[in-house]
Design a binder for these strands. Structure first.
Lengths: 146, 146
DNA sequence: TTAATTTAAGACAAAACAGTCTGATATAAA
DNA sequence: TTTATATCAGACTGTTTTGTCTTAAATTAA
């Protein structure tokens, strides 16, 4: 079970982190990404295509083709990817599921969750993909299944 | 979309919070809970039965029957309910989905997420259902659908 | 030009999650 | 005892998420 991001979003974050570690101009194939990150290949293909349409990746067909970041890795934050794949519901929804939860009708943990949510938000906007790639100690990523 | 808890868990938390507001000895029917919290009736029934089997609620059949907390509301924490319904995967899983994420093989946001997770954990264990009920300003709960 | 390789696209399938329905069982009160 | 009302239990359905498969289109290199 994923925590707060969908599987798709987790895979997207893992993929862009991996791409951030490659040399400028280098293209990575779905095959390599899927094998390294242990992500189902065709599922990953759809995710990468989606990120391409959203403008974060560029793709090339044919032999020597593959995917690469479309912009400097430091210009892509985790927030960008989460927004593109899962949307921002996490930033606006009540953690207990109350529809009317707000400043006026706060649920019983409204304030505590607000702090947690703000910290999470801060984490997403402050971390760019370049830092992400650099922070990964090992190149052999092991992706979580379940 | 739910944030971190499943729908079922959100409904469970809402229900025990509501039950915590009732007088000692009073029983609440599924009908009343479902109507007030706007939860699908038969779905709620299954959730309440599950909480009953787990020992948090007592139930009585027949007219004047219904559900009530099986113990003082202050003895039930949010943590108890989340554990009973969703389990504790949130406390152990990598937020980016990496299987091997740990102190030795930390993912790029391992430490930041660790703080968030600990704060969340603290919120769940420190808040009991009695406080929850008392903190709800309005009795007319409005449950989130979507 | 042809063959091999890669992404693009969308239909399809499986699994997980959410919600519904029906009949059985228990209980209270008339 | 009968009737009405409530939970109990589990099968069933629908929806969303996750994952698979196939064909087309593009590109490189022989």
């Amino acid at each position: 079970m994923s925590i707060i991001f969908s599987r798709e979003c987790e895979y997207a974050l893992q993929s862009v982190t991996y791409l951030a570690r490659t040399k400028q101009g280098e293209k990575i194939s779905i095959r390599e990404l899927a094998r390294t990150l242990k992500i189902p290949r065709h599922f990953l293909a759809k995710i990468l295509q989606r990120l391409t349409r959203k403008g974060f990746l560029i793709s090339a067909k044919g032999p020597t083709g593959g995917f690469a970041l479309s912009m400097p890795a430091k210009d892509i934050t985790l927030f960008h990817i989460v927004d593109a794949i899962d949307g921002l519901a996490f930033a606006n929804s009540c953690v207990l599921g109350f529809r009317e939860c707000s400043g006026k009708h706060p649920c019983a943990v409204h304030d505590q969750w607000g702090e947690i949510r703000d910290t999470l938000y801060e984490m997403l906007v402050s971390r760019n993909v370049s830092q992400m790639g650099a922070a990964m100690k090992k190149p052999e990523y092991e992706a979580a299944g379940n």
